[in-house]
Amino acid sequence: MNTYYAANLLIYAGIDIIACLALNLQFGVTGIVNFSFIVFQAVGAYAAAVLSMPPDTANGGFQHYIGGYSLPFPAPWVGGAVAGGLLAIPVGFVVLRKLRSDYQAIALLVLSVIANTVITNADKFLGGAAGISLVPPPLSDVINPNTEPYEYLYVGITAVCVVLALVVVNRVVNSPYGRSLRAMRERELAAAAIGKNPVQLKMTIFIVGGVIAGLSGAILVGFIQVWAPSVWLYPETIILFAAIIVGGRGNNVGAILGALLVPVGFEEVTRLLNNNASIANLGPPGLIPALQWVAIGLLILGFLWFRPQGVRPEPRRIFEGGPE
């Protein structure tokens, strides 16, 4: 196992953990079924990309995108996080205000499909279907990104971001505010009756989740250096949902566990299968990746059927002195 591979694995794991923590805050703790989660990650990635890149006339002008501000690290990452939060405001305004929760889920799913269509077709806006490439890695003007120390540095920055995200979501979940969120998730009407404003609570968490999702996108694009509509199709969100369902809804430790088991596991199995030529060329083209998606679907159905609370269930919060 070489350094590059280990670093690669750790960085992906970190990004997936951050994303799962954000989605768990929205879906597990608050009960918002955010089927367009990947769009928030994508907007963070696009924002970080165009903030860190030179104007699109550079490199012979082979790609087209708006912006291009060549900002130094960490401005693009902050920009990615802010972009995720900003996107959550209009989306939340339309979706979370009046609609029933299953309608909300559908509206967000449709948004995810449509956003991808629009970005794919608008080829002057963010590179269209081809996407954006040659995104400069953060701090590449200080350290050569093709060296081993840089790999360690990137793992380090990612780890800092994971800790930051974990601190934020833990603070929210374990505060009285988190109790309001859980109360609303369990019975919205009852929470409203004791003076909690469900729309406001959901809106806040939608924005907080959007910020964290945007940050995860910024970290990802800084590492892979390309971004295109094909990497944020709506099934990507379903992988993260599978992670939360497997790990344990509403439990941050469960979300981390789920991130390590499902998305990271999915990537690794893909890599191993592709390395093994006799398996990779089995059956008609595309059979193995297609079957992996089927496996994700079966994983969701299996867990919802046999263990809906996940591997690490949400702890039951019991108060001393309460009735038995």
Partner: peptide, 11 residues
């Protein structure tokens, strides 16, 4: 149920 049907759709 929405999640179940989406998983079925994906499969």
């Amino acid at each position: 149920m929405v999640i179940v049907s989406l998983a079925v759709s994906l499969m």
